[in-house]
Write a protein that binds this DNA or RNA. Structure first.
Lengths: 205, 205
DNA sequence: TAACATGGATAGTAGAGGTATCCAATTTCT
DNA sequence: AGAAATTGGATACCTCTACTATCCATGTTA
């Protein structure tokens, strides 16, 4: 299909598609002539993925590129994709270095008995959150986070269950990415609703 | 204290503090003369809160203002703050209207037996996530989300436990806000780490 | 009282995420 | 076949956000 058809079927304007091509989010089409190119269903799928990551999840264009690159470089080992490639997704928090609370995070991970890469960005996010909340007077330490971590364990188990039965490793990798990244706003939305409900129940009694 | 001291103690530049004053994120100081004003610990605390919301959580300035306004208007009823004020925090997803999947969300909430306001933005976020994932070929429905929702219930219970024993309602409200909003990146980080760990275990066997 | 600091107002800046325009090559219509 | 429309690529421009810099009249301090 041509770019205009790609635009029509994806709902993304031609100029924006050109922008994504420039930014390396979308691979170039197959050139059929000097000024003509052909796109296929893969491009359409990729475009929908881009819109989901930037729109629903609110990822930046550069963040989206990192995710998509990780998906492309993935070597057939879904475990590595989950552990490393998804680790490249920077949460908004992930700019600070030399967080003083890394010891706290180490203690938590040790207590949980988790195997987590030492350089995982998630560690930094966690450390920074602890620092922030403490500076605001919330007495948070790894003991407080432990029950949350146990629930996260069970959430992760659900996530991986969704990947069972997918035989194509590339498809499994993409599914893993979709579930990990796109489900985040949904899980937080569920938490909000659960808080409202729980709060109503506690105040009713 | 003067603005320069506020700046020094908060680590936020004087010009940025002026910007926050202009944007209505920070209340003005007590005027002591025509060109002189006095700030106190409340201002410092507010400033730290602003930096936590914009920095750690990645909230926009207008989003932060909405949150802070909700905190200010809160009438002593923490339940309402949790249910309504926190509902004003727009997740990045929250722009679309007329989502076709609201019926799906209604079914989920009904099955859970939750009391959730019909206009809660979280409903829209959830609906949009379902729509997005389906358009990408992930067969997601409310049955899939049910176990996630059960875990969200328990997370919410932990959240509300943290508020027990705080007698000052304003402090409880602020604590609720901090835990709900600032813990989000941390919970997602825990999920990432748990996924890595779970994936390692499943592939080892 | 001279030097410096302060608060408020206004204008400017950098980066993100697009959008508009131009152009030559190519396709479609008749 | 030839005119008209479309296409892909390059470049310039635009809008919004979150600051940042400068100016200035008024205060404070040595």
């Amino acid at each position: 299909m041509r770019m205009s058809e790609l635009s029509r079927r994806s709902g993304v304007s031609v100029t924006t598609i050109k922008y994504y091509l420039r930014e390396g989010l979308l691979p170039t089409g197959r050139q059929t002539a000097a000024t003509q190119a052909e796109y296929d269903e893969q491009h359409l799928r990729r475009l929908r993925l881009i819109r989901a990551l930037t729109g629903v999840r609110g990822l930046s264009v550069s963040g989206t590129r990192e995710v998509l690159d990780a998906l492309g470089e993935h070597d057939g080992d879904t475990h590595r994709l989950l552990g490393l490639a998804l680790g490249t997704i920077r949460l908004p928090a992930d700019t600070a270095r030399d967080e003083p609370e890394t010891a706290e995070v180490d203690a938590l991970v040790k207590e949980l008995g988790w195997q987590v890469h030492q350089n995982a960005p998630a560690r930094g996010t966690l450390a920074e959150t602890i620092t922030s909340l403490r500076s605001l007077g919330v007495p948070l330490d790894w003991h407080t986070l432990l029950p949350y971590a146990r629930l996260a364990e069970r959430t992760a188990a659900l996530d991986l269950d969704q990947l069972d039965g997918i035989e194509d490793p590339l498809e499994a990798a993409e599914r893993a990415l979709l579930l990990t990244v796109l489900l985040e706003p949904a899980l937080m939305a569920l938490r909000r609703m659960a808080q409202e409900n729980e709060s109503a129940h506690r105040h009713a009694g």
